[in-house]
Design a protein around this nucleic acid. Structure first.
Lengths: 167, 167
DNA sequence: AAAATGTGATGGACGATGTCAATCAGTTTT
DNA sequence: AAAACTGATTGACATCGTCCATCACATTTT
């Protein structure tokens, strides 16, 4: 047991007295913990909309909106999911009439994804809501927010690119 | 459509050409996306250990180690889960002989959690692995890492405390 | 002290998730 | 033309998060 790692408070009764130990210096812990809450927050904001529950749907909606004709595997990579998981999401969106899938002309294997009118409408509605999700972090300043976003964005792209080809 | 939001590249073929739109400035998006990868990374590191899969187990293991006699609901709150989800995790850990549950002397409703010898051994093994999880973020400096951790830690505690009482 | 209310922990049920292996259609290589 | 590869899909399975109900014990009210 090294310095600063002793079992200080034996029986804690309140959450705020908890000592997280190593986890207190572990970024992945905070990401994983906050992910739960951030997801709940977003789901609450999205209410009963057709894209509630799960990261993938919103990401897919936006990417297809921005890049009409984009391929499922690219959307999957950007959402950090594997193709099969994304296929299910797209299937769901298809059933809800949000997207349209066309088979590529040059390569018959790839699909080209497009938003339907309904999908476009939903996309802009959801965009407004996603912008509001900044409120969840109301207690940090714009500078701090931007700082964290910049750092995580960098890691995000590194990961996305590094997974290229593999899988 | 405002400035800077036009549909630039119509048909992207590579992930790195993707324009994330609003998501590119949305912290919750990066948290949710990175959560997936960070979780995969941690699961890989934990290999077949008895605490692989899921944030809860590792958190519970550490908290009980640091705070022998801690109550399930406190562990649940710190792990951002609800009591029933944590109950299942503790049940699992119990089955694996990692923890011991005693009923409180003063209040018969609350339980006091303790690590078994096996649990303590596992805890220190896992601790070493969790420390290594810093490697996932190898491309950011120690200062940047500490910066993000500080900010997210603040948000984490705000959320944990704000959920107090409610639920 | 009996009744009502509150609280901690569990358990059941349900839908959604992530993962892996298998399949299938279409493409490129040889 | 056969073999190897690639994009998308499906099935199966374990896990997850959530909601609701229940049980045991405590505290408060009357």
């Amino acid at each position: 047991m090294t310095a600063g790692e002793s079992r200080s408070n034996t029986a804690v009764t309140r959450v705020e007295d908890v000592d997280l130990g190593v986890l207190d210096e572990t970024l992945s812990f905070f990401i994983r913990a906050l992910n739960l809450e951030v997801t709940r927050d977003l789901d609450a904001r999205l209410g009963g909309m057709e894209v509630a529950r799960g990261t993938g749907k919103v990401t897919a909606l936006f990417l297809i909106d921005r890049h009409p004709g984009i391929r499922p595997s690219i959307v999957a990579a950007a959402a950090m999911k594997d193709r099969s998981a994304m296929a299910r999401i797209l299937d769901d969106m298809d059933k809800h009439g949000l997207i349209r899938r066309e088979t590529g002309h040059e390569d018959g294997r790839v699909q080209a994804l497009y938003l339907t009118e309904k999908g476009e409408k939903l996309s802009s509605e959801v965009e407004a809501i996603v912008r509001q999700s900044r409120d969840f972090f109301h207690d940090i300043s714009d500078e701090e927010y931007a700082q964290v976003v910049d750092l995580l964005r960098g890691i995000y792209w590194r990961v996305v690119k590094s997974k290229q080809g593999r899988e």
